[in-house]
Design a protein around this nucleic acid. Structure first.
Length: 410
RNA sequence: GCCCGGAUGGGGUAGCGGCUAUCCUCUGGGACUGUGGAUCCCAGGAGGCGGGUUCGAAUCCCGCUCCGGGCCCCA
């Protein structure tokens, strides 16, 4: 019986891996150029960690299991919680701020569809220790730069949960539910909910107006008319983004309903994907004290790596590939020549099927090699090799020690 | 968890109740033990799984699994 790959997982062919690694490399370079350094946490954690962050309900969407000692563990569904846990455990007295980035696989037990898999990869950053608008500005600029550098067509929406919370503060413990409805753009649900708990018509209209505020920074003026709130944090942030050339839409309906978000929240959408069009999301939050640390502000984002891979069309840079073709009896010589080519930075492949010269050349052609280096008795006697350019078909003899020159010949 | 559509060699397909399951591609070998892409020859390899209907099932029915798309959810 044939074993199939588990639902929602993928195999990646060499071409796909080359593309993914190229994208990954770009993201790392940019993150590192901002002073972020890579961290890594375990693939599984106590399931409690994620329950604390997101509530009991998410257990259904996690891979939860018991180990042999009865510990309840979960494959990580995201990395913000593990990283803050890590911060609380090991780095709470490091110089602030901390700039961390990660690139890891995550697991969620959900129905797979386009752009959604049960094992998927997130590239994200966390900037820990600052509650300044400058921290939010930095991570937004960073995310924007990453996506831009990949040539992705996207929209950036920026919201602020502080503003919404202020507007909903009179609801007390019912505010969270309202936030969720706003985040979902469920206007009807919100309407019913507010009616149910007896909110005045006038207030209801006001909340709906705020939720639908969307546009350039001029909407702050509209918001000021609706709310008695200090918008200067947001205004200073937008000043920085404007001068950095970040294009955004202010959207006060971006709520990311969870309680630990504290201020600015943002999402990047692509118009070229199906139902799963969010490619990056983030914001400022406070989780450290939830995990037993001292209250520490943080801000960060996570990029849906698999989704951006679907959007990016790029050809990875290829090294020159050489197949060393040889006659029977010259295996050792062939291995030696291949090793020389490798030490000059080329890709060198040697037949390991003991095939005829003809088959070896045919294989070289099949794998898209640039050159075939042919080794025969005649050549060996003279300290030479024959080099065949597989594109043009032209062939020439060179001294063996000249082989490294092939790296520039392509 | 829900809805729609699908599943035939490694990949792409034909057959839609009746010979040894079609064709293309592919893979290995040979024609051709000093030269790739062409041609020819030989070989390899398939109806997702389980049950039912039938003299007979890849084909019809049911269940499951997996894939694609959407809903819900999306930390």
């Amino acid at each position: 019986m044939k074993i199939e790959r588990p639902r929602g997982t993928r195999d990646f062919l060499p071409e796909e891996m080359e593309k993914r690694r190229t994208i990954e490399r770009k993201l790392r370079e940019i993150a590192e150029s901002f002073g972020y350094r890579e961290v890594s946490t375990p693939t599984f954690e106590h399931s409690e960690l994620f329950k604390l962050k997101s509530g009991e309900g998410i257990v259904d969407e996690m891979y939860v299991f018991k180990d042999k000692s009865g510990r309840e563990l979960a494959l990580r569904p995201e990395l913000t919680a593990p990283i803050i846990r890590f911060f609380v455990n090991e780095c709470s007295n490091f110089p602030k701020p901390l700039r961390f980035y990660y690139f890891e696989n995550c697991f969620r037990y959900e129905r797979p569809q386009k752009g959604r898999y049960r094992e998927f990869w997130q590239f994200g950053v966390e900037l820990i220790g600052s509650d300044s608008y400058l921290a939010d500005a930095e991570v937004i600029i960073l995310a924007d730069k990453m996506l831009k550098s990949l040539g992705i067509d996207y929209e950036l929406h920026i919201g602020h949960v502080g503003i919404l919370r202020n507007a909903l503060s009179f609801l007390a413990d019912k505010a969270s539910k309202a936030m969720r409805l706003i985040d979902k753009r469920d206007e009807e649900g919100l309407e019913n909910f507010l009616k149910e708990i007896g909110v005045k018509e006038e207030t209801k209209q006001k909340i709906k107006a705020i939720m639908n505020l969307k546009g350039g920074r001029e909407i702050i003026e509209d918001a000021k008319k609706l709310l008695d709130y200090d918008f200067s944090y947001l205004e200073r942030l937008l000043d920085v983004l404007d001068s950095a050339g970040v294009v955004y839409t202010l959207n006060l309906g971006v709520a990311r309903g969870l309680d630990y978000y504290t201020g600015v929240v943002f999402e990047f959408y692509s118009n070229d994907l199906g139902a799963q069009k969010q490619i990056c999301g983030g914001g400022s939050y406070e989780l450290a004290q939830l995990f037993g640390g001292i209250k520490t502000p943080a801000t960060g984002f996570a990029i849906g790596f698999d989704r951006i891979c679907e959007l990016v069309d790029l050809k990875p840079e290829k090294k020159t590939k050489v197949v060393v073709v040889y006659f029977r009896g010259l295996e050792k010589k062939a291995f030696e020549v291949a090793e020389n080519l490798r030490s000059s930075g080329l890709i060198a492949v040697v037949d390991v099927m003991e095939r005829s010269l003809k088959k070896q050349l045919s294989y070289a052609n099949d794998i898209n090699a640039d050159f075939a280096v042919i080794i025969g008795e005649e050549e060996v006697k003279k300290g030479e090799v024959s080099v065949k350019d597989l594109r043009s078909g032209e062939q020439f003899r060179i001294q063996t020690e000249m082989l490294p020159l092939l790296s520039s010949k392509r």
